[in-house]
């Protein structure tokens, strides 16, 4: 795969997303301030699928929101191809945890909303482009349905199409498959990989599941618990195209144990911080011994 930032066959500009020393502190009246991100730096390389894993509540979504421009860091900055980001923009399309298809538009209307609204494309051009994508994810026959008529997995796929139609430089996916059942989730991961391989888009994928991270990633970054920052980076040099055969390989197990070790250290920290609970656990163990 060409990673040199030139235009690929689809005419898409791949971008490089750099997060530089980003700190974000949440201050709420009547509560101690919470440092969600502390001097967090990472680089999402051009045309690569970077996965950010971390225990839930570690500041992953805060990072995603800052990268997408919905939230602003207290210090540090976000760069796309060297240019600082100031707000949300169409060069970075975000796919959210919860489905955000507009229920009052059909699938096709949802997918063509971006290009037609900006007046960049005529309606028929936008529809042609959207149909190519919808066909790839198996939604061709559902183009005139409303979101409520689709299953959860179909809604997620339609949402991927809506994002991809925009030719974003970077796609940010914040736990997009959460809440789907296991089967659908695995299917969605395969769809995403297919789309990634066909477009070669730069992607930042956020998840709390190791298997998902390993299956998808070129590179995995493990986040520390609050305050969040990148702890370790693991290159996932598993061959592409990947399918579920990859789960059985020795290399997969090696990488997995590497990531897990790092992740469990973070998970354990949550409990260490909750001293009271640990004491309680200790007491329970002591009292249960004969």
């Amino acid at each position: 795969m060409g990673n040199n930032g030139s235009k690929n066959g689809h005419g898409q500009d791949k971008g490089e997303l750099v997060i530089e020393n980003v700190t974000r502190v949440f201050r709420l009246p009547g509560a101690p301030s919470c440092t969600a991100l502390q001097e967090c730096s990472l680089t999402v390389e051009r045309g690569k699928l970077t996965v950010l894993v971390g225990p839930s509540g570690c500041g992953k979504s805060t990072l995603a929101n800052i990268a997408a421009g919905y939230d602003h860091p207290d210090s540090g900055r976000v760069l796309i191809d060297g240019r600082p980001v100031t707000g949300s923009g169409r060069d970075r399309i975000m796919v959210f945890q919860e489905t955000a298809l507009w229920p009052w538009m059909t699938v096709l209307k949802n997918a063509t909303f971006g290009p037609t609204m900006l007046g960049e494309m005529s309606r028929s051009d936008a529809e042609d482009k959207a149909m190519v994508l919808l066909e790839k994810v198996g939604l061709k026959d559902f183009k005139d349905k409303y979101p409520a008529q689709l299953s959860g997995g179909m809604q997620r796929r339609a949402e991927l199409c809506r994002a991809l139609v925009m030719n974003p430089k970077v796609m940010i996916l914040d736990e997009p498959f959460r809440g789907l059942d296991v089967m659908t989730r695995e299917l969605m991961q395969e769809y995403l990989l297919k789309l990634f391989q066909q477009t070669g888009l730069t992607m930042l994928f956020i998840t709390s599941e190791i298997e998902e991270a390993l299956f998808l990633a070129d590179r995995i970054m493990v986040m520390t618990n609050l305050p969040g920052t990148v702890k370790t980076t693991v290159e996932t040099d598993l061959p592409r195209p990947r399918d579920y055969q990859v789960l059985a390989t020795e290399r997969y197990r090696q990488i997995k144990s590497q990531v897990m070790e790092s992740l469990y250290e973070e998970g354990a920290k949550i409990f260490q911080r909750l001293d009271g609970i640990q004491d309680l656990l200790g007491n329970c163990q002591a009292s249960s011994q004969p």
Partner: peptide
């Protein structure tokens, strides 16, 4: 958010 993300 989705609409703003698409540039509305």
């Amino acid at each position: 958010r989705a609409a703003r993300c698409l540039g509305a």
